[in-house]
Nucleic acid binder design. Structure first.
Length: 107
DNA sequence: ATTGTGACATACG
DNA sequence: CCGTATGCCACAA
């Protein structure tokens, strides 16, 4: 069986994010009460092998699509968000605070 | 054990 | 909001 690495927990939380919602690195890190926001971003960097992780729903504290450069093509991230009804402007989510999803709220 | 690295967060001015 | 500085900690080699 797979070992429950920190990455797996991050992936699991991100998968739980409902459509039309977004979350931040710090929120995930805080929910896991382990590691720091950098760990979340680093975990998503490894998500290349997963493919099941909607990383486009994870943004930084400013609601900016900080990780879009890691998508192929980079514009894919914004496109995916708009498909879920999320408006993105200047590489930042419009009203992202209202769309911010708290993982603890799902439990 | 040590070093390098990372898609961030927070504090201060 | 911006720039700078520092903290943060898991993972790979």
């Amino acid at each position: 069986m797979a070992k429950a690495s920190y990455f797996d927990m991050v992936y699991d939380v991100v998968r739980c994010v409902p459509h039309g919602r977004v979350t931040t690195y710090g929120t995930i890190a805080s929910f896991l009460s382990l590691g720091s926001a950098r760990m979340v971003g680093w975990a998503l960097n490894n998500c290349h092998d997963m493919g099941d992780v909607p990383a486009h729903r994870v943004v930084n504290r400013k609601g900016e699509l900080s990780g879009r450069a890691h998508f192929r093509p980079p514009s894919r991230m914004q496109e995916l968000l708009e498909l879920e009804g999320i408006k993105v402007e200047n590489d930042a989510i419009v009203g992202f605070e209202a769309l911010l999803w708290n993982p603890a709220d799902h439990f």
